[in-house]
Every structure is written in C-alpha cells, then in structure tokens.
C-alpha cells in the first residue's frame, strides 16, 4: 500500500513543523517515513495515522530537528576547528607583539617609535582576529539563551 500524495504532504508538513530546513535531509526523511509507514500498513495492518505515529517514534524519537543538528555539526566541525586554530595563532602573534614591544622598549633595545609600531601591529592583529571572534561567540551564546528562554 503506497503513501498517497496527501499523506506525503502531511509527512513533509510534520518535518517542517519540527524545524527541518535542509531540503536534502527533508527529502531523505520524507522517503524514509513513507517506507516505514508503508511497511507498517502492510506488515502490521495499521491505518495511516497509527503507522505515522509509530514511524515518528521509530525514526525521530528525539525529534526530527536533532537529526539536522547532528548533520550541521558533522558538516561544520572541521571548519570550526580550523577557524579556532587561525584565531588562536593570530591571538598568539598579537600578544607576542605587545609583549616584545613593551619588554624591548623597557630594556632599551627598541626606541619608542619602533616599539610603538610593534605594539600597534599587535593591537591590530588582536582587533581583526580575537576581538570579532570573541564578540561573535558572545552573540551566539546570547542568542542561544534567548531561544531557550
């Protein structure tokens, strides 16, 4: 017994209401729901509504959105790690510049002009890497708190 077009729309509506926005994942899950529902209707002699409820318990026991979140995590984790590496390297360079500028000026190795330029390079490095990254992290945490409230 095949899932009808109306029933397919019902499944797609459920996935969208659950917050699944990735079109490819939506298609995969909708087809998977149809297969499970058809198997339940044929093998267990259930009507569509009961088979659909059973399919929800089997396929998305923790909610369909969690599958998309797992997918997003897998797709972005490498980029996130790489971004953090870059920010930390720039952060290190920035702080090193500031320390060198300060210590070499105090010890008289560099004059005020050169050490000032070195310090400025450090500040700029921090300003274009660590600072925006830190504010973006703060924004994400804040947005997360608002969503959870």
């Amino acid at each position: 017994m095949m899932v009808t077009d109306d029933q397919l729309f019902q499944i797609q509506g459920f996935l969208m209401s659950e917050g699944v926005s990735n079109v490819g994942l939506q298609e995969d899950l909708a087809d998977h729901f149809c297969c499970v529902i058809e198997q339940c209707m044929e093998g267990e002699d259930l009507d569509f509504d009961d088979a659909f409820k059973l399919a929800q318990q089997r396929i998305t026991p923790d909610g369909a959105k969690e599958i998309e979140e797992d997918l997003d995590y897998l797709l972005t984790i490498k980029k996130k790690i790489m971004l953090r590496k870059v920010v930390y390297v720039f952060g290190f360079i920035g702080v090193l510049n500031l320390l060198l500028a300060f210590s070499m000026y105090i010890s008289g190795i560099l004059n005020a002009e050169v050490s000032g330029l070195l310090a400025m390079a450090g500040i700029l490095t921090l300003a274009i890497s660590v600072l925006p990254f830190s504010f973006y992290q703060m924004y994400q945490r804040s947005a997360q708190r608002v969503r959870e409230a």
């Binding site: 095949m2 077009d5 994942l25 995969d28 087809d31 149809c34 599958i67 997918l71 995590y73 897998l74």
Partner: peptide
C-alpha cells in the same frame, strides 16, 4: 542521514534523485 550527508559533502558519495509520484 547525517553520516550519508557528511560523506557526500566530503566527496565520497554522490546522489541520484528518482521521483516516485511526488516523492523524491
């Protein structure tokens, strides 16, 4: 599905869509 999509994003899998009525 997250694993299938991740493998596809890494270039190890490709997909072919077949329409079964209105279902992909």
């Amino acid at each position: 599905y997250p694993t299938l999509h991740a493998l596809a994003a890494e270039g190890y899998l490709s997909t072919e869509s077949v329409m079964i009525g209105k279902r992909t």
